[in-house]
Amino acid sequence: MKILIIEDEQELAKDMMKFLASEQYLCEWAFDFEEAMDKISAYEYDCILLDLMLPGGDGLSILNELKELNKQDGVIIISAKNSIEDKVKGLKLGADDYLAKPFHQAELAARIESLIRRKHFNSSNIIHHNEIEIDLQAKTVKVQNQFVNITKKEFQLLLFFVGNKNRVLSKSALAEHLSGDFADMFDNHDFVYAHVKNLKRKLKEAGYGDYIKTIYGTGYKWEQ
């Protein structure tokens, strides 16, 4: 899977590449508008991470260019602007998702995974994972062909874990995933414990392996 990171902040681009490297992703980086235009016209990517403010041009023009070239690359806008207008404009121009800076890398990884899944497996909306089966459309979970009764939030968490295998996920990243951009209105994210505990219990009762490990003082990790 090829990912293009269009981001003028070098350090951030490097972090993203490092964080995503553990997956089967191959990351490339474009520093400015010109380089980005060269790359998108020359290659195909499974996912493009697009910063809207670039040296040399507006990120939205890149979306236009992709549309004109009739490219099917998935695009996630990552912007420091966090403006609804840009978000709406970007999504109208064909972007698939929008993530406001600052974000947790795990959130980005989950979004990328979800996007690629949508692009590549749009016929099948079911994720198989060892003995677990997650139906994205119906939002149901089966373990060994038996439905597990989980809440909406537990379902969201499960997907988040599956999209971030073998990574340590902090409480705040989990909380932000559940409460969105407004999670940082609170300092205490202890409620995440309860949800994860319930999720673990339910999966275990259904006969699923104990993959979710608690990392003391930090958060959780889906180990496989």
């Binding site: 902040e9 350090e11 951030l12 972090d15 993203m16 490092k18 964080f19 553990s22 420091a80 800076k101 600052p102 974000f103 947790h104 890398q105 795990a106 990574r167 340590v168 902090s170 990243a173 990392i215 003391y216 003082g217 930090t218 958060g219």
Partner: peptide, 27 residues
């Protein structure tokens, strides 16, 4: 300020992924 904050956040995310972090450091 957005960019440095974003960087700090992503560095922390990366730091968390490091192997053999003691519980003191993770706290």
């Amino acid at each position: 300020l957005q960019t440095p904050i974003a960087l700090l956040k992503s560095k922390l995310d990366l730091l968390l992924q490091e192997k053999d972090i003691s519980s003191e450091i993770s706290e």
